[in-house]
Simulated scan of single mutants.
Amino acid sequence: MEKLPKVALPTIIIAIVLIIVLAKSAITIGSGEAGVLYKTFGGGVVTDEAPLGEGFHIVAPWNKVFVYEVRQQEILEKMNVLSSNGLDIKLEASVWFQPDYANLGKLHQEKSEMYKERVLLPAIRSAARSVVGRYTPEQLYSSKRDAIQQEIFEETKKIVEDQYIQLNEVLVRDVTLPPTIKDAIERKLKQEQESLEYEFRLVTAAKEAEKQIIEAQGKADANRILSASLTDKILQDKGIEATIKLSESTNSKVIVIGSGDSGMPIILGNQ
């Protein structure tokens, strides 16, 4: 077996070391992610430069890269809160958020990778308790759901806006009341609905009666005007006009002039 040249062995060792260094220095940032660079001998977390974007990167082997998901994420939180009259309400909310990309280094330095547990969740719980405490169970159950959702979003956003977290939306998915309170509210709402329907029927009936009265009054007025306008002279003139037209007809007939009680013609004939 031939011996390796003296130069070959160091070359192989150097090549192996380079491969190890490259393997430890190479990092790939996935889709929807970004990297925060930590320089061991250069001041720690890099906060004054943009995060490492998607793709392949080479960093010094003694440095570290912390990878964050920077696309929109969702947290589903279930919590117990109190209404304005002290009743226990179960609230389920969905929070849409993402880290502030431009300040990802500061987020890592100040909040760490646990920023959701340390900042976001306490903020949403605090905002939900504050907002729900302003409303009664009936308002929470029916008319104020959208308003509550918007108020929780606004209050949570105020808390996290300087914490390098971008809050996109808060959705109230469910509000669960104590069964006895829920049943009482449903009965009340049903009674109110029935009352509104009854009032509507009364108003409709009153309008229909008013319509019939107006129509009857109109007919009575028309008849009175017509009766007042039909004098004996007008009736006689109309009778004469009718007699003339009948006399011009070829149908056989007998016309008796002035034989009626009022002096109007009486017409006799086969047609």
Score class of each variant (00 low, 15 high):
Leu52Lys: 01
Ser142Ile: 08
Ser112Arg: 08
Thr176Phe: 02
Gly55Val: 12
Thr204Leu: 06
Gln236Pro: 05
Phe41Gln: 12
Lys39Thr: 10
Leu91Met: 14
Thr180Glu: 14
Ser262Lys: 04
Gln109Arg: 06
Glu154His: 13
Ser252Tyr: 13
Glu197His: 02
Gln236Asp: 14
Arg129Leu: 04
Ala228Thr: 13
Glu33Gln: 11
Gly43Tyr: 04
Ser31Ile: 10
Thr250Glu: 15
Pro61Met: 12
Met1Cys: 07
Ile14Val: 03
Phe56Ile: 13
Ala8Ser: 04
Pro61Phe: 13
Glu186Asn: 15
Asp221Thr: 13
Pro99Thr: 09
Ala220Met: 12
Leu235Cys: 06
Ala60Pro: 01
Lys238Thr: 09
Tyr198Gln: 08
Thr40Gln: 07
Gln193Met: 07
Phe41Asn: 10
Leu91Lys: 08
Thr243Pro: 03
Lys116His: 05
Glu54Cys: 00
Leu82Glu: 06
Ala123Trp: 07
Val70Leu: 00
Pro137Gln: 06
Ile16His: 04
Asp162Ala: 06
Lys238Val: 08
Glu215Met: 12
Thr243Phe: 09
Ile240Tyr: 06
Thr40Glu: 10
Asp237Leu: 07
Val119Arg: 07
Thr28His: 05
Asn103Ile: 04
Lys158Trp: 09
Ser229Arg: 06
Gly263Lys: 11
Gly32Tyr: 12
Glu197Phe: 06
Pro137Thr: 03
Ala209Val: 04
Val81Glu: 04
Asn103Cys: 02
Ile58Ala: 01
Ala50Phe: 14
Pro178Cys: 08
Ser143Gln: 15
Pro61Val: 14
Tyr115Cys: 07
Arg224Pro: 02
Glu151Phe: 12
Ile181Thr: 11
Lys78Tyr: 03
Val36Gln: 06
Ala147Ser: 13
Glu161Asp: 07
Arg134Val: 07
Gly269Trp: 04
Glu74Ser: 14
Val65Gly: 06
Val45Met: 03
Phe153Pro: 04
Val45Ile: 13
Lys238Phe: 09
Ile266Asp: 11
Glu2Gln: 15
Asn85Ala: 03
Asn270Gly: 14
Phe153Glu: 04
Val170Lys: 11
Lys238Gly: 02
Phe41Thr: 09
Val256Tyr: 04
Lys78Asp: 12
Gly55Trp: 12
Lys207Cys: 01
Glu74Asn: 15
Leu167Phe: 02
Lys207Gly: 01
Ile213Glu: 15
Pro179Cys: 05
Val17Cys: 15
Leu202Ala: 03
Lys3Trp: 12
Lys253Thr: 08
Ile29Trp: 00
Arg134Ala: 11
Ser126Cys: 01
Gln212Val: 11
Val65Glu: 06
Glu194Phe: 02
Lys144Asp: 13
Asp162Thr: 11
Pro137Asn: 06
Ser84Lys: 12
Val59Gly: 03
Ile16Tyr: 03
Ser112Asp: 09
Asn270Val: 14
Glu69Asn: 07
Lys116Tyr: 08
Trp62Thr: 13
Asn85Ser: 07
Thr204His: 02
Asn223Val: 10
Gln166Cys: 01
Asp221Trp: 11
Glu117Asn: 10
Ala242Asp: 05
Glu199Val: 05
Lys3Cys: 10
Glu155Leu: 09
Ala209Leu: 08
Ile266Leu: 14
Leu76Tyr: 01
Asp48Trp: 01
Ala184Gln: 15
Leu196Trp: 07
Ser259Trp: 00
Asn85Val: 04
Leu76Phe: 03
Ser252Thr: 10
Ser112Glu: 11
Ile257Cys: 05
Ile148Leu: 11
Val81Leu: 02
Gly105Val: 03
Leu120Asn: 06
Ala26His: 10
Asn223Gln: 10
